[in-house]
Design a protein around this nucleic acid. Structure first.
Length: 403
DNA sequence: AACTCATTCAACCGCTGTTTC
DNA sequence: TGAAACAGCGGTTGAATGAGT
């Protein structure tokens, strides 16, 4: 079966075939036309280059705006985005986005224009607030005598139990605890923050335009999504631990493990509102220091070192390739209890992995950039004002490029 | 002109979901 | 009901091309 670029002759054969037989049944193309291409390749060639009404050439300003808006809403859902842009293919949009992102990253610009960030953030928060309200409303119906204010962890657990839906990720940043922190931050920093569905660059990016605040808002669901996958791969790359098998990050449920840890970890240190709640849980000290490889593998790392993370550890042993397995779904259905355990085992003073320590703040690059985070973690008892000050430090800026 | 490095984008790969038998 | 085939998606790769020196 031939691979590589298509020739004009091959194109002609494929076009002729589709004219006669229509689209679909791509594996039959080779049998019926003699074209030495696999069905997949034929489908791709037809969809991306040969089908009628394709728009070629660079994207117009209008199209670019649509893509940016759609990406803010959908994340890396290229095929869905393509349905909104007649004549454009998912591949084109994906390529456009990736190059655009790299360009902006190099230029130190935020991935999204500010107005798009704000729109997406508003929409995101609205959705999540609604979700939390629903749970609280349900609580009142089932137990009218219960306290009107639920704890964050309780809400989170129950929201997930009821609404476990990986397409509409629940983030821990949706809790009102966050709004009370985020809103003042917004005022102080000229509303520079983002809550879009693919915030990997806001997490680790070089958003110099956002200097002063790059809030680590949850890129998407901690339970697995394309953006979470990207997040992990990017993170792995940035931290210089082996990423020689990048697919492991999305094929072995490691995304869930690591990402979730990271979210909770950072959130607990950044946001005073949540810090209060998390710090009220007794946290036994962790023995040992996770190694970089343990972060990458999801093995005996941060999570593995704790005793009550069985549910999450189990998820790694699944042999299937699905990111979210049925077993995992089941495990997460009991998230409420597990989450409490998880939080209870999450260290308030997180041991620093090797790559955090390296450099000691003297050298340039990742290690020194992390110094603020490292020292921050080692002093989890800082006063809220210090928390805020730290959150506002541009410590996430100037990180190595993602790509 | 020759070389290197960066960028672009077509094509591939691995995976998941759906349909068919 | 389960296996196989098919279709589609998103991430990645690598050849072609362009820009810079």
């Amino acid at each position: 079966m031939k691979k590589g670029p298509w020739t004009a002759a091959e194109d002609a054969i494929l076009v002729e075939y589709v004219k006669r037989h229509g689209e679909g049944n791509w594996n039959a193309v080779q049998k019926n036309s003699g074209l030495a291409r696999c069905g997949k390749s034929c489908r791709l060639r037809w969809a991306n280059h040969l089908r009628p009404n394709l728009r070629k050439g660079s994207f117009s300003a209008e199209e670019e705006k649509i893509i940016i808006d759609l990406h803010a809403q959908l994340g890396n859902k290229w095929a869905r985005m393509a349905t909104q842009l007649p004549g454009r293919t998912d591949n084109e949009i994906k390529n456009y986005w990736n190059t655009r992102m790299k360009r902006r990253q190099r230029a130190g610009l935020p991935i999204y224009p500010q107005e798009v960030q704000e729109q997406a953030a508003a929409s995101h928060l609205k959705q999540r607030k609604h979700l939390v309200e629903e749970v609280e409303q349900e609580d009142k119906l089932t137990d009218p005598h219960s306290s009107s204010t639920s704890s964050f962890t309780s809400i989170l657990g129950r929201s997930q139990r009821r609404k476990l839906n990986f397409n509409t990720p629940m983030t821990i940043f949706d809790h009102p605890s966050f709004s009370s922190v985020v809103n003042p931050l917004q005022n102080q920093t000229n509303s520079v923050f983002s809550s879009n569905t693919d915030t990997k660059f806001n997490f680790f990016g070089e958003n110099k335009a956002n200097a002063g605040l790059t809030l680590p808002l949850c890129p998407a669901s901690p339970y697995g999504s394309s953006s979470s996958t990207m997040f992990n791969q990017s993170f792995a790359a940035n931290q210089s631990f082996p990423a020689s098998q990048p697919n492991n990050y999305d094929s072995g449920n490691h995304s869930y493990n690591f990402n979730f840890t990271a979210m909770l970890g950072r959130a607990s240190y950044v946001f005073p509102g949540l810090e209060t709640e998390l710090s009220s849980i007794q946290t036994p000290p962790l023995s040992g220091t996770p190694t970089s490889s343990s972060y990458a593998s999801g093995g005996e790392g941060l999570m593995g070192a704790t005793s009550n993370s069985g549910a999450i550890e189990n998820s790694q042993s699944t042999t299937g390739k699905k990111l979210i397995t049925d077993d995992l779904m089941e495990e997460m259905s009991s998230m409420d209890d597990d989450l409490i355990s998880l939080l209870a085992n999450f260290p308030s003073a997180m041991p620093m992995p090797e790559w955090y320590r390296k450099g000691g703040g003297q050298s340039s690059g990742m290690a020194s950039e992390n110094l603020g985070l490292a020292s921050r973690h080692q002093d989890a008892s800082s006063a809220p004002t210090q928390e805020l000050a730290w959150a506002l430090e541009p410590c996430w800026n100037n990180m190595p490029g993602i790509c």
